[in-house]
Design a protein around this nucleic acid. Structure first.
Lengths: 184, 184
DNA sequence: GTCTATAGGAAGATAGAC
DNA sequence: GTCTATCTTCCTATAGAC
């Protein structure tokens, strides 16, 4: 036959990974995967113990790589941890883009909701403004960083009052964008 | 009676908002909301035209505020847009924390999946390493910013090759953390 | 190994009693 | 206005034929 068992497994994982990254885990049904692969739901469930098992097999390498980074950093004190942490984290994210997208693309999935019409376009223009309306790729990257950074900090518990948090966030975002405040 | 119509509507919105922010939109059923409010699904659907209508009413103020910022920034050229963009964005996120959480907390919902066991704890330790293992709140904020920034950039289309993107990301992340590379 | 058929359940939404 | 009961649809997962 054209595809052996393990080849079929890999094909299922490949399709599932792509669909999960686009429509989210919950937003993707076995039907969707089966349709794309060109087989039945039952065939999927012969090769995997369930939808969860597919996700688990998909994410395990990335989680293991994170665990390795975790161990590596545990041995480093204070300042010496910063650079390895940054490099390790960046490498991890870039290496497992697809897997990270599975986590994060529940957001674009939500952004397709009618209630959020136009938000994507406004975000693009916001990034443009944050980048100082230049075509410089590095400014664009820095602007995207701010776009991702602020919501995470804003929705996470932080040991700061609201006014203080606002001031710190604005200052550090401007710093990231190389627009440090020089006013008195 | 104890609660009038509009009071009931507000209570439904309040409960829905909280549940959406914790378990995500798709992860929260009308049953869940009704149970928490202490009424039936039918009662919910008497006051709202459906689950989507609840979400829409919940997110509309935040989307409108974003639209206002969008208009305000459209009139500003180049560099002059950066600071208002940063301040406007930070204010927006902090003012609509709950709504932003509804978008972003599809992720923590996923992080509860067995395949991702331990990832939250490892993330906490990663933030600690990124912050240089200090108790300084600003360093902690900067570390959280990097944690949020890198995945967004890594999963977004950027006009850079992989090696270049890695280099830019590492450099700017270190810059955000005040650990700029001073090596030759 | 892969299929069809179906069980079994949960979701959103509706109908009609009160 | 709010309820119970029900409808429809979609989901995951299983059983058994081929």
């Amino acid at each position: 036959m054209a595809r052996n068992s393990s080849g079929f497994r890999r094909e299922i994982l490949e399709v599932a990974s792509r669909l999960f990254a686009v429509t989210g885990f919950k937003g993707t049904s076995l039907q969707d995967i089966a349709g794309e692969v060109g087989c039945s739901k039952a065939a999927l469930l012969y090769h995997f113990d369930g939808k969860d098992a597919i996700l688990t097999e998909l994410l395990t390498p990335a989680v293991e790589a994170l665990a390795e980074l975790d161990v590596r950093l545990a041995g480093l004190d204070g300042d010496t941890a910063v650079r390895p942490a940054v490099e390790g984290f960046v490498d991890l994210v870039l290496r497992f883009r697809r897997e990270v997208k599975i986590l994060y693309d529940e957001i674009p999935e939500m952004l397709r909701h009618p209630a959020l019409a136009g938000v994507l376009e406004m975000s693009d223009r916001l990034v443009d403004a944050l980048a100082g309306r230049t075509a410089d790729p590095e400014a664009h990257v820095a602007a995207l960083m701010v776009l991702g950074a602020v919501p995470v900090v804003g929705t996470q518990p932080v040991p700061l009052g609201d006014d203080e948090l606002r001031a710190v966030l604005v200052r550090r975002a401007l710093h990231t964008l190389d627009h440090d405040d020089t006013r008195p």
